[in-house]
C-alpha cells in the first residue's frame, strides 16, 4: 500500500504526539520524585558566575494553552520592568504584547492569541545594524540594549522584523512602587524585552513566564536549549514547535506550538 501525503503526516503526527506525551509524563514523574509532589519552581541554572555560551536561553509558547483575554504575562512584565503608560498607542512602550491572529480572507475564521516579545535571535538584525554595539548578544544568547551607550538613532527599530523595540519618546518620572531591582528610563533611547535578565542572573525565570504559570494557563515555558534534558529542548525536539518568519534566517529563540 502506498502512503499518500496525508497518511504520512497523520502517522508522523501520532508518533510525535506519542513521544511528546511520553516525555511530558517522564518530566512529571521527575518533578514529582524530586520535589515531593509540589509543582517545582523551575530554577534557571546558569553555568558559572557570568553569562556563558554553555547556556542558550529560550522559550517555547504553546498557543493552544494561551487563554483568550488573559494578559497575565503583559501585566507581570509591566510591573517587573517598570514599563510606563503614555496613553498614546503610537508612543506606548511594549516589551511584550498579545497578538490576535486569524486566517486572511476566510469569513468567520477562528481568532487566536499569542504573546510576542523580543525573540532573542541567534542572528539579531538589530545588533548587526547598531552603530555602537549598544544592542548586542550576550554569550548566553540574550539580546540586550545597553542603555548607557545607546545613541537613540533607531536604526534597530527599522531592522527588527518582529517590532520588538520601542523608543522612549517622553520623559518618565520614577515613582514610588517601582520595582527597584530594575532601573527606570530616560527618554531618547531604545528598549525592549531582555528576558528579565536580572532574574535569569539570579536564577529565576522571566516574570511573564512565572505569571503565565501562576495566574495564566501555563502556556509559556522558559529554559536552556543547550541542556538536552530541559523542558524547552524536549518540547522543541518532540513537537512541531515553530519560529516566526523562519524565512528571514534570524533564528529566533522563541518557539511557538500550535500555529
Amino acid at each position: 500500500m502506498a502512503l499518500d501525503r496525508r497518511d504520512f503526516l497523520t502517522i508522523g503526527g501520532l508518533i510525535a504526539a506519542g513521544t511528546a506525551l511520553g516525555s511530558v509524563g517522564s518530566a512529571f514523574s521527575h518533578t514529582a520524585s524530586g520535589h515531593e509532589g509540589h509543582e517545582a519552581e523551575p530554577a534557571v541554572k546558569r553555568t558559572g558566575d557570568r553569562a556563558s555560551s554553555k547556556n542558550k536561553w529560550g522559550m517555547v509558547i504553546d498557543i493552544e494553552k494561551c487563554g483568550e483575554g488573559c494578559d497575565a504575562c503583559v501585566r507581570a512584565c509591566r510591573k517587573e520592568n517598570n514599563v510606563p503608560h503614555f496613553d498614546d498607542p503610537k508612543l506606548d512602550i511594549h516589551w511584550i504584547r498579545k497578538i490576535t491572529f486569524k486566517q486572511k480572507g476566510v469569513p468567520g475564521a477562528e481568532e487566536r492569541q499569542m504573546p510576542a516579545m523580543c525573540f532573542h535571535c541567534e542572528h539579531p538584525p538589530c545588533a548587526h545594524v547598531c552603530p555602537v554595539a549598544a544592542t548586542f548578544k550576550r554569550a548566553d544568547g540574550i539580546v540586550l540594549v545597553d542603555k548607557h551607550r545607546c545613541i537613540g538613532c533607531r536604526y534597530c527599530m527599522i531592522a527588527c522584523p518582529y517590532k520588538a523595540r520601542s523608543f522612549v519618546s517622553m520623559h518618565v518620572e520614577p515613582k514610588p512602587g517601582d520595582n527597584r531591582d530594575v532601573p527606570v528610563r530616560m527618554h531618547g533611547v531604545v528598549e525592549k524585552c531582555n528576558f528579565c535578565v536580572h532574574r535569569i542572573d539570579s536564577g529565576e525565570e522571566p516574570a511573564c513566564v512565572e505569571s503565565c504559570r501562576k495566574e495564566g494557563n501555563g502556556a509559556m515555558v522558559f529554559g536552556d536549549f543547550n541542556d538536552r534534558a530541559s523542558k524547552v529542548s524536549e518540547m522543541v525536539r518532540t513537537s512541531r514547535a515553530r519560529r516566526i518568519r523562519p524565512d528571514l534566517g534570524c533564528d529566533p529563540q522563541v518557539f511557538y506550538m500550535g500555529i
Binding site: 548587526h128 545594524v129 547598531c130 552603530p131 555602537v132 554595539a133 551607550r149 545607546c150 545613541i151 537613540g152 538613532c153 533607531r154 536604526y155 523608543f167 522612549v168 519618546s169 527618554h187 531618547g188 533611547v189 531604545v190
Partner: peptide, 23 residues
C-alpha cells in the same frame, strides 16, 4: 540632532562596528 541622545556624539567613534552601515 535627530538622535535621542545627541550628547553621545562621540560614542560611534569609540565603538566601531564594521557590520553596521551607520557606523
Amino acid at each position: 540632532m535627530d538622535w535621542g541622545r545627541p550628547d553621545r556624539i562621540l560614542v560611534p567613534f569609540f565603538h566601531f562596528q564594521p557590520r553596521s552601515m551607520f557606523s
